[in-house]
Amino acid sequence: MSSVPAALSATNSSWWHRNQQSMTPLLLLLPGVLFFLFYVIFPIFQSFNLSFYEWDGLGERSFVGFYNYEELYWDDAFYISLRNNVIWLVLYLLAIPAGLFIALFLNQTVTGIRLYKSLFFFPFVISQVVVGLVFTWFYDPTFGLLNVFLGWFGLGPINVLGDEHLVTYGIIAAGLWPQTAYCMILYLTGLNAVDPEQIEAGRLDGAKGARMLWYIILPQLRPATFIAFVVTVIGALRSFDLISVMTNGGPFGESRVLAFYMFEVALSEYGFRMGYGAAIAVMLFLIMLVYISFFLWKMARDERGV
């Protein structure tokens, strides 16, 4: 009788020893995968489901089908938010080339380079709330440094955050400050992995300046560019804290973006409309998915040389 458990134990032990090398990484990844499924994937499907209901967050849900999406179609505030998100997407991408050129400068051997690196790195480590407060003071029409500077040339004062035509651009400029620092850090890390033999081979072939950058350095920086692009797009689409701190969506709702409008309708003055907020979140997710999927497809084509 005792020989049967012993045989089973030997069989199990031998299976583990045979598969230990392949199973160990999976076991180590399992907690992270479970957290990702529970805190990322599950809420996405939950938001899709909630967008078909009318719910105040406390009472009973009422199924309304596509009514929330139909209401979005006629909602002027939604289109203002969508327009501002497109502006954010286009202008926020300026952080990528700006971060690249700053990284190229900081990668040189010059006197005081550590001080320069610290100065450019500083915006990345401070809170977005602090960035918003600093730029609010900077734009202030009475004592802000922007209007002091314009006054030297006989211009101004300009109330950037109070002008419905300028407010979005003023907030984007504030957001570009730390985002450029983040892209700079990514490219500095990528430049440390650039193959010096390829650079030397390029110099022997007469490549220098822009040709060296375009044909030799940038292809080796594709992983850093991909990460910078994805993080920048996500940052542009989920922009909330700067808008909340600097304008709270004003003036006249002209600085709203989808993430801020979602907060307003779901948790603020619009009566806790969770279903309508979820519909806005779904639209934001689909925009992000299309934008990043297109970039992934383009990168895959470039890798294949199509």
Rank of each mutant, 00 (worst) to 15 (best):
M262L: 15
Q179V: 10
Q198L: 15
A181H: 04
F226V: 00
G59H: 00
T111L: 06
M246W: 00
H17T: 09
V282W: 14
N68V: 00
F48C: 05
Y182G: 03
V33E: 00
V148S: 09
V64A: 01
A193I: 01
V194A: 12
S127D: 03
P141N: 12
S62R: 12
T247L: 04
W55Q: 04
P219F: 10
V40Q: 15
S13L: 14
F38H: 09
N159T: 02
F226D: 09
W55V: 10
V148L: 12
V160N: 00
F138K: 09
G190N: 06
V125N: 06
Y215H: 15
G112W: 01
L191D: 10
L50C: 04
Y270V: 02
F143E: 06
F252V: 09
G209T: 07
E70L: 14
A281I: 05
F105S: 08
F149K: 05
Y139I: 14
S2R: 13
T180I: 09
Y261M: 06
D241E: 13
V131Q: 03
F36Y: 11
S255V: 01
A103R: 13
V290C: 11
I199W: 05
R83P: 03
G151N: 05
Y261D: 13
F263T: 08
M262D: 05
L204Y: 08
N85V: 10
Y270I: 01
L191C: 02
V290Y: 01
P157G: 06
F272E: 13
S13R: 15
F138M: 14
F229Q: 08
W88Y: 12
E269A: 03
W152Q: 12
F294H: 01
G154T: 11
R301V: 04
I227V: 14
Q128T: 14
I216R: 08
L100K: 08
N85G: 06
N85A: 03
N192T: 12
K117E: 14
L155F: 15
N159R: 09
A278D: 08
V231M: 10
E164C: 03
S22Q: 10
W152D: 09
A259V: 07
K117W: 10
A95E: 02
N19T: 01
W55H: 04
L89V: 08
I158P: 08
Q108V: 05
E254P: 00
G144D: 05
G175S: 08
Y139K: 07
G57F: 01
D140H: 15
L119I: 15
Y291N: 13
G275R: 00
P223L: 00
Q46N: 07
G253D: 00
M299N: 09
N84P: 01
I96F: 10
Q128D: 14
T189M: 02
L186A: 11
L296I: 13
S293D: 01
T136H: 09
W177Y: 05
L161R: 04
